[in-house]
Design a protein around this nucleic acid. Structure first.
Lengths: 154, 154
DNA sequence: GTTATTGACCTTCTTTGACTTTCATTTTTA
DNA sequence: TAAAAATGAAAGTCAAAGAAGGTCAATAAC
């Protein structure tokens, strides 16, 4: 017997196929359809549609809420995926982050303006908390920005 | 599902477009038109036409009352200076920061891509430290990015 | 022993309605 | 007839209900 998670995964992938790699769905609706707990959907999204696997998820709560799933083009984004999955872990120094940003600009992944804005955001001075945590916060901000860029390049 | 709030927002924005950035309306009339509670209009004004998003509201009660919505139009450099020197102090919430970024995009100070990168950098999730400090770090990052943008413009 | 499933509880955003305040107009009243 | 009171016509406020999605830990299945 096929596992529920797998069935939901297949279902979503079929929808993504039909809809050109981007779709919006209602969590409760989908849970109803599969007669499962709504949180089952979150489980499937977390395990099968993670960033690692090349998907980006955004959602909104409240009336008119939704879950949006975006399939990322991994092939054309090797470098960013490498940065997210391997290069940047829990911590990164300002110098290393700047080098990465500079490199992205050189490769034409981001504009010069974008590179300057990003550099501003990851400066020691901007983060301004005890040094022990700075590199952690920087890594986290850096990954958030990179993830957004990944989405943009789709 | 289309949210009522969004429909009302769009409607008002269209009216503003037609009327050169300033308009007067009757709360009850608009509520009638959308068949909703009058206070729904207040909700839309508070969430979508806030100062941070670049609108100013005045109103008058009683017979012949009205609500006036004014789209603010400040010189872009002045606006950034205002943000740096007055609006953003030591702390700022994610919502307020997002509203400001949205407004800057609307005014053409930054591109959409830049706005998304900036939003990524100031998310709660990206900053990821004790809540008590988040707003401080966000204010600091926000100001660093704005300072860079200001430089770019001169 | 890892992967799935469920359910209880939480957070966010929207919508509604009851009650309040303000202002203009009309009606009383000294 | 001028001040005061009543009336009605707005808009404002706030809390509760409703409508989503999120989290996490306990169990179940493999």
């Amino acid at each position: 017997m096929a596992r529920l998670s797998d069935m939901i995964e297949e279902f979503i992938k079929a929808l993504l196929e039909e809809s050109n790699g981007q779709l919006e769905l209602q969590r409760n609706e989908l849970a109803d359809y599969f007669e499962c707990a709504p949180s089952q959907i979150n489980y499937v999204l977390a395990t099968r549609f993670s960033l690692d696997r090349g998907y980006y998820i955004e959602s909104r709560r409240g009336g008119g809420g939704y879950i949006r799933i975006i399939r990322l083009d991994m092939d054309n984004n090797d470098y960013i995926m490498y940065l997210l999955k391997e290069r940047i872990g829990n911590r990164i120094s300002q110098q290393a982050a700047e080098d990465i940003i500079y490199h992205m600009f050189n490769k034409g992944i981001i504009t010069e303006r974008e590179s300057l804005i990003m550099k501003a955001a990851i400066q020691d001075k901007a983060i301004g908390i005890p040094t022990s945590l700075k590199d952690n916060v920087r890594a986290s901000i850096m990954k958030a920005m990179l993830t957004t860029i990944l989405k943009l390049r789709n």
